[in-house]
Measured scan of single mutants.
Amino acid sequence: APTVVALYDYTANRSDELTIHRGDIIRVFFKDNEDWWYGSIGKGQEGYFPANHVASE
């Protein structure tokens, strides 16, 4: 899976979202739409995150 790096912190608001912190490396499983992508950090943490909070490595 491609990876991206978090540019900003984001705290999940729902159970299907992913909390990310600046500098996190996120594996992107799919891009649901322009605004929300689905991916994982490490083991067990996965969910939707805002695409405008990340950039290609």
Results as ranks from 00 to 15, higher is better:
35 D>A: 10
22 R>S: 12
23 G>S: 01
55 A>V: 12
35 D>P: 00
24 D>S: 05
6 A>C: 12
26 I>C: 04
53 H>P: 04
46 E>Q: 09
50 P>A: 03
8 Y>T: 10
45 Q>Y: 09
30 F>R: 15
18 L>Q: 00
10 Y>H: 10
17 E>K: 02
22 R>P: 08
6 A>F: 04
28 V>K: 03
46 E>H: 12
7 L>F: 03
10 Y>C: 05
9 D>S: 08
21 H>P: 00
23 G>D: 04
27 R>T: 13
54 V>P: 05
1 A>C: 13
33 N>A: 08
7 L>A: 08
38 Y>W: 09
38 Y>F: 14
35 D>R: 09
46 E>A: 08
11 T>I: 12
50 P>M: 10
3 T>V: 11
2 P>G: 15
27 R>I: 14
11 T>W: 08
51 A>Y: 04
41 I>Q: 07
30 F>A: 15
16 D>W: 05
9 D>F: 02
33 N>D: 14
45 Q>R: 14
34 E>M: 11
8 Y>G: 06
13 N>R: 14
18 L>F: 05
4 V>K: 00
17 E>I: 05
8 Y>W: 08
20 I>L: 13
47 G>K: 00
28 V>C: 04
1 A>E: 06
49 F>Q: 01
42 G>A: 12
25 I>L: 13
19 T>F: 04
25 I>N: 11
42 G>D: 14
34 E>T: 11
28 V>M: 02
47 G>E: 00
22 R>L: 02
34 E>V: 11
17 E>Q: 14
25 I>S: 09
2 P>H: 15
5 V>Q: 10
8 Y>H: 14
36 W>Q: 04
44 G>D: 14
50 P>Y: 00
34 E>F: 04
20 I>C: 06
27 R>Y: 14
12 A>V: 05
41 I>D: 14
46 E>F: 08
5 V>H: 06
52 N>I: 06
57 E>L: 13
23 G>T: 02
34 E>L: 06
27 R>S: 12
14 R>W: 08
7 L>P: 02
28 V>A: 00
36 W>D: 05
30 F>L: 12
9 D>L: 00
2 P>Q: 15
8 Y>F: 12
30 F>D: 12
21 H>T: 12
23 G>C: 02
21 H>L: 06
27 R>Q: 12
23 G>I: 05
49 F>W: 00
55 A>E: 14
36 W>V: 06
47 G>S: 03
49 F>R: 00
38 Y>D: 00
28 V>H: 04
17 E>D: 04
24 D>R: 00
37 W>M: 05
38 Y>N: 02
33 N>F: 03
30 F>E: 10
49 F>P: 00
11 T>Y: 07
20 I>M: 10
50 P>H: 03
22 R>Y: 01
45 Q>F: 10
4 V>S: 04
56 S>D: 12
40 S>C: 12
2 P>L: 15
38 Y>Q: 03
7 L>Q: 12
52 N>V: 07
